[in-house]
Amino acid sequence: MHKRHTEGWSRREFLGVTLAGATGLLGLRPDLVAAEPPETTTLRLARNDFDLCIAPQFVAEQLLRDEGFTDVQYIKKDGVVWHEIMLASGEADISMSFLPNTLIYLDKGAPIVLLAGGHIGCLELLGSERVHSLRDLKGKTVAVFDLQLGPISFISSMAAYVGLSYEDINWVVYSPAESMQLLAEGKIDAFLVFPPEQQELRRKKVEHVHTVLNGTLDRPWSQYFCCVVAGNREFVRKHPVATKRAVRAILKGADLCGREPEQAARLLIDKGYTNNYEILLQALKEIPYGKWREYNPEDTVRFYALRLHEAGMIKSTPQKIISEGTDWRFLNELKKEMKG
């Protein structure tokens, strides 16, 4: 069955399945379908080349159309532009985002609001033979591709959890490809990888490189979301129905990725997001999608805000960020409506 789906389904067939999922498989009740239409039929979501971990929002394209959005746009800009930047500027309305980044932006007063949890532990910290635990990062060289946002925020929060500060680590800037090469050569000590890089690297079985921390499996990181669903504050304020519908579609996408990774992978291949089906499927299977009902996004925000605060990367208290930067109303309603 799975094989047939992943290899033989056409796009039309898949859309049929997603529609069926909308009424049955994913728990969507008919009364919700007939609910109030969205205030806008246009929805803009942010995307980058490398962000396959947020597959649910790409998988959800048809689901979004089903929710009444006739014009669904995935905004991609030249180079790497963090989703938070697009959300804050209003170039994107709703999107999944990397939580530590989003918290840093919220601390700066960006008009972003967190709406729901996404998935758990899509990242992995790879280390050389000199690094076997987070404590070993002290005085070591860690590669990141941005000194302000992205991996650096996550690694800083992880380091803060074991009592290391930002200054305890020597940060160097390299692209992921360069970092992998340098790590294999022993010229750097660690770097953080995202899907599908980690799956690709695992297949290559690079010598002298091992996993220091796996976000999916290792506590406490595996107990918190790493990516969340966020929205532009003004969009959310003006379009509550559209927001709820968009969040619902993305969460359904997450359910789909969790329950039917083959279908999801096929769709992403069809859509041209990537061309390596095996790697993509492996990534979708490894990432625990569909935990959004079970895990507590507010506690996730609290946890990361505490770590970033300890690391000195944000000044706001967790309470302030939660009170000013989150809105769980839609999630709470959807949890009731979409029983798992």
């Binding site: 506690d299 609290r302 946890f303 505490l306 605060h309 208290t317 967790p318 309470q319």
Partner: peptide, 9 residues
């Protein structure tokens, strides 16, 4: 986390 956040606040 709640207790720590309370402390930070």
């Amino acid at each position: 986390n709640k207790a720590e956040a309370d402390m930070v606040a």
